[in-house]
């Protein structure tokens, strides 16, 4: 079961409910076969974007194209899109096979063919033996797999996933992430995946769009967004980050609250905005650096996370791998810290 994914294009899509703007001039190109994630808090417009592609909501203005053809006026059932829902949405009165067969029945496929293809889809998600079970007899992970098999059985070129792992516990969620990624690479369809879990987004996506208040705040590869966030919102949403206000500049660096003059790896030193630095890019240093006191030490297994406070009141989080020679510190210890200069990021807003 291999398909060619379809390219998807959102063109200035706008959706309003009365005075509430759910989606504001939403434009995005998804390449054929790409795994694109829409990441954002609830109310950010990510589900609206997905629903307008699925055809559950009519867009106010703009256009949506699949392989260059507008689908804005095409009814949902004619869009030929596979979809996995957050609560599985399996049909409770149909058994597993009946659920998976549903899209094929709707397409008028012959009975023998339906059975063959449904069983094959169940093989892909390794549920071949449970075809006769009823949905209420399945575990959460099994239901999720049935929902996935049902969404791909008719070989759609576009697969939408709306927080498909939201109802599962952490361990199962992580296992299912790997499975989803594996199936997608195996099948080759284009996936648009909606989640509010940034870890999931980083793990799964080829590219991801961080959304807030109906707008895309930043779109790029997971590495782009982790290493080069363009705003405070993105920097805070993805991974742990230290974000400190910049209150001015001197010729040799920016004046950062609680830290003094910090030199950024750029030509022109910023005079306002924020300094952003990841915990793993702050070091303990034997000499020089910024004096600080350890306020909190959190043992993470492979690393220790310290919350430290500089002499001038800046609170920073730093992560230290446990493999080094450094012994762990108790709260109250006095240390000095320094930054990996080329990892310092200036956030304009």
């Amino acid at each position: 079961m291999v398909v060619n994914g379809a390219a998807i294009e959102f063109k200035k899509v706008r959706k309003t409910y009365g005075n509430f703007v759910a989606l504001e001039s939403f434009s995005m190109n998804v390449a054929a076969g790409e795994f694109m994630t829409l990441l954002g808090p609830s109310g950010s417009g990510k589900t609206t974007a997905l629903n307008s592609l699925a055809g559950f909501t009519d867009i106010t203005s703009g256009d949506i194209l699949i392989d260059g053809v507008s689908i804005a006026r095409v009814p949902t059932e004619k869009r030929n899109i596979g979809m996995v829902f957050q609560n599985y949405s399996l049909f409770p009165h149909r058994n597993v096979l009946g659920n998976v067969a549903f899209p094929l029945e709707m397409r008028g496929v012959g009975r023998a063919e339906i059975r063959k293809r449904s069983l094959k889809a169940l093989e892909i998600v390794r549920l071949g033996g449970l075809a006769e079970r009823m949905p209420h007899e399945l575990s959460g992970g099994q239901k999720q797999r049935v929902a996935f098999a049902r969404a791909i059985v008719f070989e759609p070129r576009v697969l939408l996933m709306d927080e498909p792992l939201g109802a599962l516990d952490l361990k199962l969620r992580e296992a299912m992430q790997l499975e989803i990624k594996q199936y997608q690479q195996q099948i080759g369809c284009t996936v648009i995946y909606v989640t509010h879990d940034q870890g999931e987004a980083l793990t799964l996506s080829d590219r991801l769009a961080v959304m807030d208040k109906g707008l895309i705040r930043q779109l790029g590869t997971p590495q782009d967004l982790y290493d080069r966030p363009n705003s405070r919102f993105v920097a805070e949403f993805i991974g742990l980050n230290n974000i400190i206000k910049i209150s001015g500049s001197k010729h040799d660096g920016a004046i950062v609250d609680g830290l003094g003059v910090i030199r950024f790896p750029s030509e022109i030193q910023p005079s306002q905005g924020y300094l952003s630095v990841r915990p793993e890019h702050i070091r303990r240093t034997p000499t020089g650096g910024h004096p600080a006191i350890v306020r909190q030490a959190v043992f993470l297994g492979d690393a220790v996370r310290y919350v430290v406070e500089t002499r001038n009141g800046a609170e920073l989080t730093l992560a230290e791998p446990r493999s080094g020679e450094n012994s762990s510190l108790d709260p109250g210890s006095e240390i000095a810290i320094s930054f990996e200069e080329n990892r310092l990021i200036h956030l304009p807003e």
Binding site: G82, N87, S89
Partner: peptide
């Protein structure tokens, strides 16, 4: 009734009337 069940039927290829007859009515 959870309306997403009907939505699931629609996106998987059922017309509005079929979705109602096959998914909502049994409920």
């Amino acid at each position: 009734f959870d309306i997403t069940l009907e939505r699931a039927a629609r996106v998987l290829g059922a017309s509005p009337i079929k979705a109602f007859m096959l998914v909502t009515l049994p409920y």
